[in-house]
Design a protein around this nucleic acid. Structure first.
Lengths: 332, 332
DNA sequence: GCACTTTGCACAAACGTTTACAATGGCTTT
DNA sequence: AAAGCCATTGTAAACGTTTGTGCAAAGTGC
């Protein structure tokens, strides 16, 4: 049905080899005259290249696959924008796959559709790969790199913020405003990222001479619901004067639940969010945040894929962005 | 490097044809004994199928490509979830491509990477294709369907909400609460979708015996900024008592700007948003919305791709969801 | 006018699969 | 024992490209 270079060759009266070279613009290999003939034939037939066939013989592809976990996280789009920008610079194309939220079956499906085709590399956006799927990935010979997630024991390539610092700085920002009883809401302790944030948080308190109570840390999965649940656990009579939300969503969950409990933000309760996506300036009051540089993470990700370095574990910078959800506390 | 069926064939002492048959599980064509041999060899070699090669000969693929415009719209994820759910039912895989926000070059890039490879169909999420890119798409022989966007003259397959109804019902919801001076903010009049919403809005007013002023409709691109700008245009002294936001984002923009102008929502100003994504319940007050059924749009999209019907223009239902941003107005 | 170098092109193999067709051998049927 | 059938397997062509090799014609220098 669709035209192939064979059809073009016939129509232009040359060989397929010549057609291929003209179309690939390997300029040393053909004359102007044949080139015009070939181009004319190509447009006449409405030729569409079959890249899959080409990739089969060249054994090399120019598409980067991005695997995203589909939790209701919202920073993905920022990372993807970074990825796209850098990829396009180098004439690479980007495809995105959703792997379910920690669902090994869906993860496998996404991984498979990508591994079975020629892709130049795989970027995994904060996906906690099930062990069997990690094996699959590693066995596939395709370069890969994790983004916005880190690992403990395993030696895996990843690019992320310093999560310990994230926890530390968020907490410290509150301490500097005079807060001393500070919660941490919606953080996950099953994975390295979450554990690091808790450690940073704890250390910041200790450095200020504060001993955190166990109930100050409410675990969760970074979601809006996790934030709400955490705030409900703290309760309207909480001794806390400030809370670090484990993500923007969690922070919003905390804030909305606090309001439902009759607490005003920041008058009664200060909040610092972690992530710093546009969500923070959408809500009211706007959330002060420890912001990650997701865009740069994306850029670094494709650079890593393009380089041959074996084990990069790059750290991208963070910064505190003051908005409206923290108030200065008078000395008690 | 990577093992092929040829290697397996050698190791198992059979032909590649047999290997292919065993691996594809064409059960009528081989014995148990050879099957086990083949499988053993395959796992020993860590075989990874090269789907691209297979698709080359079978001339048929099982991946659906979804092209998304990267405006800061947030309903995309809901549609994609619908697409994935339905696709997986039928053993189809989904890949997602970002086409820039109305940038023909990026659109072309996305389209190309998809057309040049074997895909089973293309779904376009609210992307306003530049004319030349539309031609490209149509010339590609690949089935396609637009989602969450509609067209005027051209006979194109699309699935969307009834945008006239969307405009009508949003406006009517406010009229029913006693409002008579109602704005429409952030809507785009360059495309069919936006024009229909304006028409629905206008008709609803007329049906209530209200003659809308020109300034009541503030055009824009559905973004947060568009909402803010619109509200700024209305001003603090606006005669309007209610505003329809052209999207969730636009509505939030309106709301936040209104607050900055000293207007309380819904006490001084009522708002109805269009879309009804989770954003509506994240902000404070929660936004009453005319909600679209994005999930179902996704499902319908892949059904359309699977069917052979040529020109489907399906309408998905909408519904009014009451939250907290509209107040009943006393008769004046 | 000869040997030599370019230039421009065609031939054919290769990439990793699937599948139509043919071939083999054992079993059943008569 | 011949004939036919079935189950299992192999042979080889095909998919649409790219690219190494080789060959003819044209151009160059003597």
């Amino acid at each position: 049905m669709a035209a192939t270079i064979k059809d073009i060759a016939k129509l232009a009266g040359v060989s397929t080899a010549t057609v291929s070279r003209v179309l690939a613009n390997k300029s040393a290999f053909f004359s102007e005259a044949t080139a015009t003939k070939v181009h004319a034939a190509a447009t006449e037939l409405g030729y569409q290249k079959n890249t899959a066939a080409a990739e089969l013989v060249t054994r090399h592809s120019n598409v980067i696959a991005v695997v995203v976990n589909s939790t209701k996280t919202n920073f993905a789009s920022q990372i993807i924008e970074g990825i796209q920008a850098e990829a396009h610079q180098h004439d690479l194309n980007v495809i995105i796959l959703y792997a379910g939220d920690a669902d090994p079956v869906q993860q496998r499906r996404a991984l498979m559709t990508v591994i079975e085709r020629p892709v130049m590399g795989i970027l995994l956006l904060s996906v906690d790969l099930a062990p069997e799927n990690l094996t699959l990935l590693q066995g596939s010979q395709v370069p890969y790199c994790f983004l916005s997630i880190s690992f403990d024991g395993e030696r895996l390539p990843y690019i992320t913020s310093d999560d310990w610092q994230v926890g530390y700085q968020a907490t410290q920002a509150l301490i500097k405003q005079g807060h001393r009883r500070i919660g941490l809401a919606g953080v996950d302790s099953d994975f390295h990222t979450g554990r690091q944030r808790v450690l940073g948080y704890t250390q910041a308190l200790k450095d200020a001479g504060i001993t955190p109570e166990d109930e100050w840390v409410q675990l969760g999965n970074y979601s809006y619901d996790a934030g709400q649940t955490a705030m409900r656990a703290y309760g309207a009579q909480t001794e806390l004067t400030a809370i670090v939300g484990a993500s923007d969503m969690a922070a919003i969950g905390v804030m909305n639940q606090a309001r439902d409990l009759g607490l005003l933000v920041p008058a009664d309760l200060s909040i610092v969010a972690i992530d710093g996506t546009e969500l923070c300036s959408l809500v009211q009051p706007q959330l002060t945040s420890v912001s990650q540089n997701f865009y740069e993470m994306g850029i670094a990700g494709v650079q890593q894929l393009r380089s041959t370095e074996t084990l990069p574990q790059k750290i991208t910078p963070i910064k505190l962005v003051n908005r409206q959800s923290v108030r200065m506390l008078k000395a008690e």
